[in-house]
Structures are given as structure tokens and as C-alpha cells.
Design a protein around this nucleic acid. Structure first.
Length: 594
RNA sequence: GCGCCCGUAGCUCAGUUGGAUAGAGUGUCGGCCUCCGAAGCCGAAGGUCGUGGGUUCGAGUCCCGCCGGGCGCGCCA
């Protein structure tokens, strides 16, 4: 519909140019938006306002000429000029009635388009380190990323969903060491847990499993484990630093000690055991949450293929790597970053950043037209350096979009419910899902703009009332299903064609409002997809449900008149279809009975 | 200190490339079930869009300063 009107306006401009009213420059984008007020018609264009200057005449006069030059269309009831020079379009009822037929015909495909032209886009999201279960912060990234991917797919992109598994880094060694220490503790050894180790309860669980399976094969006396290690960081209960210990140096030394005492074989097993247990858990968790990936990309594979070293080599050859204080630095400041960054530490280990450069280069080399990363907002300072690296490697950094997601803060009884991650006691995604359900979690996570902090009201998410937008929308769906059941119980038959033939009987104000809402759906999906803003769809679905509830409350669907009843049934079924399609994109179910 | 994000009704938030009289939900108050699901609907009240300038036909939206909040500024990831 929108496109149709824009085409008409373009033709009008062309005619005015030929007649010499307008200079040669033609705007590519024709401004056209949904009118906010019914008295302003269905669509409004400010085209005359923006072109008045170059046309050297008053906006209203230009608007007059444009309207006069507008080609005829059976979808237009009338065109008016209003205010300073807006052109308001009033559609014919037929234009809206056609939407019902289109929805019923296209079904699940209604709202989908070919806008993306099959271009390949990769969406990488969550990618939490496999060092512990996903928490509620990851949950937002999961819901957001999955929905952005769904939306892009809906508008015609070929989407590749990917999870980057940090299974090679130093953090994984720290996890392995943490498990081992808990294992030793489990076996009665007097250990002192490192300040930089993973303290979560799940580490103890894995340690206990290891013991149950392997017995005391991995036991080494604590005295040997801790002999001659550098000082760890020590803090008092208030968190003040005591002594001069360095937690990074200490944990690295502890990891080396573990490798030395356990030997390659045992250490390897321990490492794999921790990684696989946690990664399996993350996979299950996400799958249960309705988040499915095309690929789990292993950092270790990347490293084993030599990609990290090759990338560093390329950067060095290009002249952007130098040595300072025993480490290798990438000159990211040459590409707009605040300062240069270390890619290889003085102990020879490459940094997380180094493998991330290699990974992103590899993404580009895989031939994606567009690469999207979803990151926690606390990583925003990281964006310039990754883009800098891509640019240094001769790639176009604009092909990468980094979407930042702010934290979610849980509220229960009006108070913050989130615990600190430092202590290892955090609310996991699984706990959240078990408490409020997948549907509420998926919906609430994307209800707000991603760059906005999210106040997640647990009580509201659990409530089964109109206050809860998820139930409100699902209820509209269930109501239509209920009407169909009533239809059978009352012995009515349904004839879709008869309904389509009598759509003109849908002339009530509430029916018109519902028709308008339905016709907006494709525009909403397109806007939400292109701006990466799932919340637009969430808000829309609420409005659509409201339009239906209002209508339903005011008028009966199952009236005695066959033609009117079938027309209203078609309208209701079209509503049900759009709600289903929208919820499906959000990863929320549409139950027939609640 | 520097960088990024945010500031809209009591609370939580929308506000479409700058457009017409700034909107929802919630909360408060008041109505609506002999009738397809009241898990619903309708109405009232509630605003110096943090603040001061600027850009223009027009600014919640764009630019600059200031105030307030969050995050970041590691040879951590």
C-alpha cells in the first residue's frame, strides 16, 4: 500500500518536472507515513514541504499542483491538502478489505518480504564463555539476537545464526584449574581458592562428578599444588586490597602447576570435562528457550588452523604491529581507536582481542554481505578496536554492525532481585525461565529498546491478567480460537469465500480500526527488521490485540446473518493469523486455549 | 578527566528518514457480564518532553553548552 502511494507521488513529480514546475533533482525517498489522526486520512506526505524551497513557491501551492498531477487509483477515496502543505491520502474501504484476503491467502507467509534480496547476513549472539551457566544478562542477548535474526529472515535475508565458543582461551584453563581445586577439596585436601577462580556452585558439581567417575586418580597433595607460587591478590571483607599479590599472575601460575602435576593426559581430560559439561548445558538451555543456531564456531579450531597467527602476520606485514615492553601491539589508534592494543602478551600468549580479530576476518572471508554482532553494552569500548583491525586488514568495517544490549535488572515485589556475579551467586537464565516461563521471558526481554536498561518485573511476567502484555496478546489469539469452537457448537457453517465476497459489510468503526492495524503489519516487520528493533513488533502486537479486544467487546462475531458472520469470521481469523506470525517472530507461543 | 548510552505523565516506557493537538501500559477514581472467554472493554484525571542556547516554514527528534544517572577507559574476557 505504502509503496503504491509512493509510486503515485513519484509519477506526479515526474509530470511536474516535465511541465517545468520542478528542477531536475528528484528525491530518492518519498516521505510517506501513517497519519496519526484519522482526520488526516490514512497516509500523509510532507513532500511538498520539503520540495517547496527548490521549487521556489509556497508549499501549499506546490501541493496543489502535485495532487492535480497525481495519477488516478482505485485505492484512493480522496486526497486532501492540509496544514502547511501536507498531502493526506484517504484510502477506499476496498483497499483495506483486500488485506483480509491477502492475510488468509498467504497465511504464515503474510508479512514476509523479499526486501533483503537473499543477501547473506550473519548474526552472532550470546557467545558467552563456556565457563558457567548462562545468566539473565545473556538471556536478553539471546532473545534479542534470535528475534533480530528472525526479523531479518522474514524480510528476505539469508540468515546465519552463530555462537562463538571461546573454548581456547585462558579462561578455560582457569575453569579447569577451578574444577581441579574443588575436586581436591572434595577429596579432603586443604585448598585455598584463588581470588580469580570460578567460585560458582556448578564448579563443585562438576568436581563431584569427576570424583564419582574417576575416583582419586587426580589427587595431588595440596602442599605440592601450592608450593612456591607467587602471591595471590588478597582483600579484606570490605574489599580493600591487602598485600601486593597479582591475581592474574597467580592464576596463570596455578594453571601451569596443574598442567605440570596432572600431566598432559589428565589435564586434557579435566579441561574437556569442564568445557563439555558447561557447553552442553548452554546448548540445552538455549534450545529450550527457542534459540537455535546454525553453527557453533570454535575458537580452538580457529587457533589450531593457525588463523590467529596468520592474522597477526598480516597485520605485521601491513605495518600496524610493533613491539613495546616485551609485548606486541596493534596500532589501532591509527584507525580512530583511543589507544593501541596488545595482541600478544609478554609471556607469549595471544590476547582475546587477537583471536577476535582473526575471527572477524574469517567471518568476512566466509563471504557474508553483512555481519552483525550482539554484545553486552559493557563491551561498547571494544567496538572501535575491532573495526580498526578490520580496516587495517583492508576490509570495509561498515559491513560489521555491533548491536549493544543493556543489562536486565530483575525486580520482585518492587525490589531488585539480581545478585552479584562476583560471588558466583547469580540468577541463571534457566531459573528465570522456570519461574516466569519461556513466553514471558522472550517477550519481556525484547519489550524495550535494546540500548535501554530493562526493568524486568518478575511478578508482572507471571501474572495472568491484562497487565501482562504476553497474556493480553495470547488471549486475543485464544479468543478467536474459542469463537471457532463456538461456531461448531452452535451448528453454524463457515464459508470463507462468502465472507470474502461480503467484506464490504465490515463498516463498523472498530472494524475499520482493526483493518488498519492488520494492514500495518508488513510495515512494522520491515521497520523492526531494518532498524534491529524487535520492541517495535512487541508494541505493535499489543496494539493489534487491543484493537481486537475492543472490537470483540463491542460486536458479536457469530451473528445470524450468514454473510456478515462469515465476513467477521474472516476478519477474526486474519487477526489470529497476524498475531501468530508476530508472536512466532518473537519466539512466543500462540496457545489455542489458555 | 575522556568516550559511549540514557533523561518524555506518580511508576515502566513508545514516539516511524525532523511534521499537524506529545501517546500507551500501570497506578488512582468512576462505569460495563440474561449476550461468542470479564485473562476483556469504556471513561476521567495526570506533561515547563532534565536544562539553556542554536539550526528552520516546523524540534521530544538535529547541533553546542550545562545538570543528573548508567557503562567503559587492563599485557581480563
Amino acid at each position: 500500500m505504502k509503496l503504491h502511494l509512493q509510486t503515485l507521488l513519484t509519477q506526479a513529480i515526474d509530470r511536474l518536472r516535465q511541465d517545468g514546475w520542478l528542477p531536475g533533482a528528484v528525491p530518492v525517498d518519498i516521505p510517506l507515513e501513517r497519519s496519526r489522526d484519522r482526520t488526516h486520512g490514512d497516509f500523509a506526505s510532507s513532500l511538498a514541504l520539503s520540495l517547496a524551497k527548490i521549487a521556489r513557491c509556497k508549499p501549499r501551492d506546490l501541493a496543489e499542483r502535485m495532487v492535480a498531477a497525481l495519477p488516478a487509483s482505485d485505492r484512493l477515496a480522496k486526497v486532501e491538502i492540509a496544514g502547511p502543505g501536507f498531502i493526506n491520502f484517504f484510502l477506499t474501504p476496498t483497499a483495506y478489505h483486500a488485506t483480509v484476503g491477502e492475510i488468509l491467502e498467504r497465511g504464515d507467509a503474510f508479512g514476509r518480504s523479499a526486501l533483503g534480496g537473499g543477501r547473506r547476513v550473519q548474526v552472532e549472539f550470546v557467545s558467552a564463555n563456556p565457563t558457567g551457566p548462562l545468566h539473565v544478562g545473556h538471556g536478553r542477548g539471546a532473545a534479542f539476537g534470535a528475534t533480530v535474526a528472525n526479523l531479518l529472515e522474514a524480510v528476505g535475508y539469508q540468515v546465519h545464526r552463530e555462537y562463538y565458543v571461546n573454548d581456547a582461551g585462558r579462561q578455560m584453563n582457569i575453569l579447569a584449574a577451578s574444577i581441579w581445586l574443588r575436586y581436591l577439596e572434595h577429596c579432603g585436601e586443604p585448598i585455598r581458592f584463588p581470588s580469580n577462580g570460578y567460585r560458582g556452585e556448578y564448579v563443585r558439581t562438576i568436581a563431584a562428578q569427576l570424583y564419582a567417575e574417576q575416583g582419586s586418580a587426580y589427587v595431588v597433595p595440596a602442599a605440592r599444588v601450592f608450593a612456591d607460587l607467587p602471591a595471590d591478590e588478597v582483600r579484606d571483607e570490605a574489599g580493600n586490597l591487602l598485600g601486593t599479590g597479582d591475581k592474574e599472575i597467580y592464576i596463570d601460575a596455578l594453571v601451569e602447576r596443574a598442567k605440570a602435576l596432572l600431566g598432559d593426559h589428565h589435564y586434557r581430560y579435566l579441561f574437556e570435562r569442564g568445557l563439555n559439561t558447561i557447553l552442553d548445558d548452554i546448548r540445552d538451555d538455549l534450545r529450550e528457550f527457542g534459540v537455535v543456531y546454525d553453527e557453533w564456531y570454535s575458537e580452538r579450531t580457529l587457533e589450531e588452523q593457525g588463523a590467529v597467527n596468520q592474522t597477526l602476520h598480516r597485520l605485521r606485514t601491513a605495518g600496524y604491529v610493533y613491539e613495546k615492553e616485551g609485548a606486541l601491539w596493534f596500532r589501532s589508534s591509527a584507525f580512530g581507536d583511543e589507544k593501541d592494543r596488545v595482541v600478544e602478551r609478554d609471556n607469549g600468549q595471544t590476547t582475546y582481542f587477537a583471536s577476535d580479530i582473526a575471527y572477524h576476518l574469517e567471518k568476512f572471508e566466509r563471504g557474508f554481505d553483512w555481519v552483525i554482532d550482539v554484545w553486552g553494552a559493557d563491551h561498547h569500548g571494544y567496538v572501535p578496536r575491532v573495526k580498526a583491525a578490520l580496516q587495517a586488514l583492508g576490509e570495509n568495517p561498515d559491513r560489521l554492525d555491533v548491536l549493544l544490549v543493556q543489562f536486565a535488572i530483575l525486580y520482585r515485589n518492587g525490589e531488585r532481585a539480581q545478585m552479584s556475579t562476583r560471588s558466583g551467586e547469580f540468577v541463571t537464565l534457566r531459573e528465570l525461565r522456570q519461574e516466569v516461563g519461556n513466553d514471558a521471558a522472550r517477550f519481556f526481554y525484547v519489550m524495550r529498546k535494546s540500548e535501554q536498561h530493562l526493568d524486568f518485573d518478575l511478578d508482572l511476567a507471571k501474572s495472568q491478567s491484562k497487565d501482562n502484555p504476553v497474556y493480553y496478546i495470547q488471549y486475543a489469539y485464544a479468543r478467536v480460537c474459542s469463537v471457532l469452537r463456538q461456531l461448531r457448537e452452535k451448528g453454524f457453517s463457515r464459508d470463507e469465500q462468502r465472507g470474502l465476497a461480503h467484506l464490504s459489510q465490515l463498516s463498523e468503526l472498530h472494524e475499520e480500526a482493526l483493518l488498519v492495524a492488520l494492514s500495518r503489519y508488513p510495515e512494522v516487520v520491515e521497520a523492526a527488521a531494518l532498524s534491529h528493533e524487535p520492541h517495535q513488533l512487541a508494541h505493535y502486537l499489543r496494539e493489534l490485540a487491543n484493537a481486537f479486544h475492543t472490537y470483540y467487546n463491542e460486536h458479536r462475531v457469530l451473528v445470524p446473518d450468514d454473510a456478515l458472520r462469515d465476513a467477521r469470521l474472516n476478519l477474526s481469523l486474519a487477526t489470529r493469523q497476524v498475531i501468530k506470525n508476530g508472536l512466532n517472530l518473537l519466539g512466543v507461543s500462540a496457545p489455542e486455549v489458555m
